[in-house]
Design a protein around this nucleic acid. Sequence first.
RNA 1: UGGGGUGUAGCCAAGUGGUAAGGCAGCGGCCUUUGGAGCCGCCACUCCCAGGUUCGAAUCCUGGCACCCCAGCCA
Length: 565
Amino acid sequence: MSIDEKEEKKDFIREIIDEDLKTNKFQGRIHTRFPPEPNGYLHIGHAKSINLNYGIAKQYGGKFNMRFDDTNPSKEEQEYVDSIVDDVRWIGGDFEDRLLYASDYFDKMYEWAVQLIKAGKAYVCDLSGDEIRDTRGTLTEPGKDSPYRNRSIEENLDLFERMRKGEFPNGSKTLRAKIDMAAPNVNLRDPIMYRILHESHHRQGDKWCVYPMYDWAHGLEDSIEGITHSICTLEFENHRPLYDWFIDQLGIYHPQQIEFARLNLTYTIVSKRKLLQLVQEKHVSGWDDPRMPTIVGFRRRGYTSESIKVFCDKIGISKKDSIIDVAMLEWSIREELNKTAQRANAVLNPVKVILTNYPEGQVEELQAVNNPEDESAGTRIVPFSREMYIEQEDFREVPPPKYFRLSPGKEVRLRYAYIIKCEKVIKDDKGNIIELHCTYDPTSKSGTPTANRKVKATIHWVSAPHAVSAEVRLYDRLFLKENPDETEEGKTFLDNINPNSLQVLTQCKLEPMLGAAKPGERFQFERMGYFCADIKDSKPGAPVFNRVVTLKDTWAKIEQKDIKR
RNA sequence: UGGGGUGUAGCCAAGUGGUAAGGCAGCGGCCUUUGGAGCCGCCACUCCCAGGUUCGAAUCCUGGCACCCCAGCCA
């Protein structure tokens, strides 16, 4: 990276950090964290956050913590913990040995709660959930003080202790901060610090039956870990006064909370609840379905972590609510794979071609370039014979205007091979094309001095006797609408699911080399797109490929336009 | 209608009183044995609106408008 690039734009958070460094606010330390709740799988929005937090730590020579905000046992599971750790590592967030859990701080938090009670800043409240809601007031009207607000410190201490011991049922009591029931910010109207939850915690077991609420817990977690910049999303902006209040009342180390806009993508949903619903109602095959915007989904689809990082860097950081065009994400993976992916020939929807003037039984070994963007990738040998497969869409019996590919009487080049001419179309009784009889021009062999005749198009092909059969899964956007949540009366985002988001092709014909593809290996199938051998289902000898993303398709655009005219 | 935020191109996003970067998308052209890639060019007389200050305003002031978030014992 050049100096210019290094000094390139700073987002507003880095500007704040630069200022803090200048004023020595945190004695020159930089320490960030990624604090997910283990109640679901990570998605692309989390990738943005990890990239931001880890990126800052790395850039400034600071530290980055992985911390589970596991304060609600009723929603959290070990399965999620495991997957999240895996995902953060895959994205490249290096937390070294700092895999931390908020639940490990429960004792300290409890102590601090006692400290607040002793300071007269917290009280045990017997109001029910409904009563608390009813007395909270509205956005425009102040709330009413709880009748339990002025219990004695001794009574509060006793009650809170008994809450912890399990003497009271769920929902019967809470510990509340004594702030201001008339505060214009409703978060400050005596917020709940602890609720009673007789439930087993995935790490703490049955040690606790009172669990801290987010607002109470989060700042304490940051403070304990010595976080300098606690970066979160915009919806927590309203909570910052509370974050600050708790820390200030306790008089403990005070990190700075900064909020930024969460990521939204067109044609995509990033809501843990809705993602869960897609999985549970089996609209997708699981959290790692290649159509899911989850990290595991992208990973299985064939995205690289580098491309996701590039994407995150590209979109920037701000406080503006935004919806990023998913084309930017697609661009980032194309950009990388164009430079790195080995090229290959694969016919997805085959139609057989017979070269009537090519000697029967003859096989030629042709040389193909592995990656025109990278000379060091070298070349490989592909077999050529009398019978081959080409793509159905590379032949039109009645070619539309500007169609350069094969049609009766027309010529086209077979990539790395010969120019062929379509002489005859063979159909079955129903009129389906089953074979194309062509002739080849022996003087047109690629690489020979007489090969330079120009034809309008070059198409890919796979020699029939050498072809490897494979399953290829064509993925498309999961939703039909840019904003899947935009629905008519009575409909939901589920009604916007793209019924054609997955097309499974089982009769694909691949060049021999592809038969040995290792799971996770990526290729460009020339003229078709980028494909990745499925990490679960693909086996050497029996490959299964996922389409990561198509190539840009100029012809499709031309044809679309002409159809509209 | 209380409080907290945000408004720069179709989508992101720089810009911090000196005359609107960049990327994605789109549109032309060149090149091409991938209709890919690459290369060249075009794409905001104007920054939500209206006033004001100033020699000069996207930037400062005043007043509007629009959109987002908040009334979980979720995070």
